[in-house]
Amino acid sequence: MKRVSFAEFGGPDVLRLLDAEEPHAGPGQIRIAVRAAGVNPVDWRIREGQILGAHPVELPSGVGLDASGVVDQVGEGVEGVRVGDHVFGEGSSTYAEFAVLSAWARMPDRLTFEEAAGYPSVVETALRIIREVGVRSGQTLLVSGASGGVGSAVLQIARDRGITVIGTAGAANQDYLRSLGALATTYGEGWVERVRQLGHVDAALDLAGSGVIRELVELTGDPRKVTSIADLGAPEFGVRFSGVAGSMPEALAEAVGLISRGKLRIPVEKSYALSEAAAAHIDSRAGHTRGRRVLVI
């Protein structure tokens, strides 16, 4: 089979599309014929060697955590899923023609494989950071860098929970944020005052790592009400850096419920061939994404 891998840490040029042995489902796992793989910032952070404490890597290594596809092996002890089922979930080395998943759910009927691959990690992250920041129904949440995959999920999940959301993004994504139910404003000079004009901020999330932690603490008045998933320097301000995943099976179950009720939809901004993984990482790292980027196998 074909698999994207890297033999050294570095830039996108270290990625190679190579022949590899097919993986096999162990106990409690399934294997899928991959139809699409989600491209997440954590993928290129791992490739660069940024977060080895949270994600240890043995080189050479495959790439990718999220995928959708067709079940073709069911491991020992697994129940409730059969060969031929269409699933999406989380595993390892998902930038490949076959991948083993450790957490999965059946795809809702309304999703394509391409769309489904974009949900697992971003929904788990969105649910986790909303919980960690302690925002409740009737309060207002500020989301810095709100137009990407995690931001898209946060805005919709918060809205479903009765939370008002203020989102910052580039000028081209203002209407997109509003379509997801957010009060939208642009980042850049004067953004703090523009946020204040939209309302009081009870809690804030930093999704872009654009150096705004100090301002988010100022707006909330409490570093404990701010969480970042993108700024490794956040703890210097007393702000939580959230990098340890919670329960993926629970997140997938909640995602299925939200999608089935029409309360969650994360668009695919761009699709890439497996051979274009490096280009996908370059685009992901550049930011300004509206929704998700996926590899299609």
Rank of each mutant, 00 (worst) to 15 (best):
G170D: 04
G170H: 09
G170T: 07
A171D: 10
A171Y: 02
A172D: 14
N173Q: 14
N173L: 12
Q174R: 13
Q174C: 04
Q174M: 15
D175V: 02
Y176A: 11
Y176F: 15
S179D: 06
L180S: 00
G181H: 08
G181S: 09
A182P: 09
L183I: 02
A184T: 05
A184P: 10
T186M: 11
Y187C: 05
G188Y: 02
E189D: 15
G190N: 11
G190K: 12
W191C: 03
V192F: 02
E193G: 06
E193V: 00
R194C: 04
V195T: 03
V195E: 01
R196T: 00
R196S: 08
H200L: 02
A203V: 04
D206C: 10
L207K: 04
L207P: 03
L207G: 01
L207V: 08
A208F: 09
A208G: 09
S210D: 12
S210Y: 05
V212S: 07
I213Q: 04
I213R: 03
R214C: 00
R214D: 14
E215F: 01
V217Y: 07
L219I: 06
T220A: 10
T220D: 11
G221K: 08
R224I: 00
A230E: 08
D231M: 04
A234V: 02
E236S: 14
V239S: 05
R240C: 01
F241L: 15
G243W: 03
V244W: 07
G246M: 01
G246S: 14
S247Y: 01
P249W: 04
P249E: 10
E250I: 00
E250H: 08
A251E: 05
A251T: 08
A253M: 05
A253E: 14
A253C: 01
A253Q: 13
A253K: 13
V256T: 14
G257T: 11
S260T: 15
S260D: 13
R261A: 15
R261L: 10
G262L: 07
K263H: 13
K263Q: 14
L264N: 09
R265S: 14
I266S: 04
I266D: 03
I266R: 02
P267A: 12
P267D: 04
V268M: 08
E269T: 02
K270M: 06
K270A: 12
S271Y: 01
Y272T: 11
L274I: 12
E276M: 04
E276N: 08
A278Y: 05
A278L: 09
A279R: 15
A280L: 11
D283L: 13
